[in-house]
Design a protein around this nucleic acid. Structure first.
Lengths: 159, 159
DNA sequence: TATTGTTATACTCTATAACTATA
DNA sequence: TATAGTTATAGAGTATAACAATA
């Protein structure tokens, strides 16, 4: 059996084999790696993994409402409040009233937020280039395409 | 600009485009989809996403120690305690003393745990077949290979 | 009545640090 | 001194439910 104490090699192989078996678990481990490196990338900019995506969406969709942001990012409206609070507190975005509907907040980048977003986007691009350096451009396109198909199919199936 | 209220189409496209841009964010969204479907799959068996992987590792590595399990799954030893407690409480695995070292626990499946694992493995296999049904076998191999390369490279870089 | 944003609350996951018993 | 397991605790992340203001 395995009474011999040559643990390192045999156990690493067992771990790798386990990693091989389930795609879902592999996705989890990949996210772990991405999350850690992404955190190191964003902290110097005063951002977190959880504020990067909302900032990206506001940058690309000026005037978007909190509910719409909630839909796009698939987080609850109560979670959006906390994230928008934080981004507003660091001066990256601001809530503005909407002319026709006094319930709604329209979210806009500030000037400082625009600069921050430029830095963050470049930093995350570099982070992904670094992390996925072993993959060819075709590999990268493929992985994006495959994941997107899984996500979009599943999310549409829920509606 | 975007004063026209034809939100649905244009906003969905914006969301999709955002989803396209960053591989890391796509991995997160994919995990969200996987996690949700996996939970529905495991709950009827009395398992959770967080107990499935440890069960799989113990099934494949009878007698593994908690510290080794911690290494393989990349979770802290304190986290292992809770998970092993839970799996032991539902009668799936058991801690056994190790002859040469009274500090260490050896983890083994119970007979009931073996049956549970058989069911769980089949259920998760079906869940992945269902979730990744749009992908060809080659696509599946590719996605596994690409993710594994990213993970193994990053994890080895940390050592 | 329905929707937007908000608050309060709780639950999961994970991490740190300190402790114990062994080695 | 170092290691295996444990406990206590705290921080993210996310979910639900109830509420006020507005539609």
């Amino acid at each position: 059996m395995s009474d011999t104490p040559k643990d390192d090699v045999s156990e690493d192989t067992a771990a790798d084999r386990f990693l091989q078996q389930f795609t879902g678990y592999r996705i989890k481990r990949a996210l772990l790696v991405v999350h850690e490196d992404m955190t190191e990338t964003l902290v110097p900019l005063g951002l977190r993994v959880g504020t990067f995506a909302p900032l990206a969406v506001v940058a690309a969709n000026p005037g978007i409402s909190q509910t719409k942001l909630s839909d796009v990012l698939k987080i609850k409206r109560s979670g959006v409040v906390a994230v928008v609070d934080e981004l507003e507190r660091i001066g990256a975005i601001e809530r503005k009233p909407v002319a026709g509907d006094r319930r709604t907040n329209a979210l806009f980048m500030t000037t400082a937020g625009g600069r921050l977003w430029q830095q963050a986007e470049a930093a995350i691009q570099a982070h992904e280039d670094r992390l996925f350096t072993d993959l060819t451009d075709e590999d990268n396109d493929q992985i994006r395409d495959l994941l997107s198909r899984v996500i979009l199919r599943a999310e549409r199936a829920k509606e």
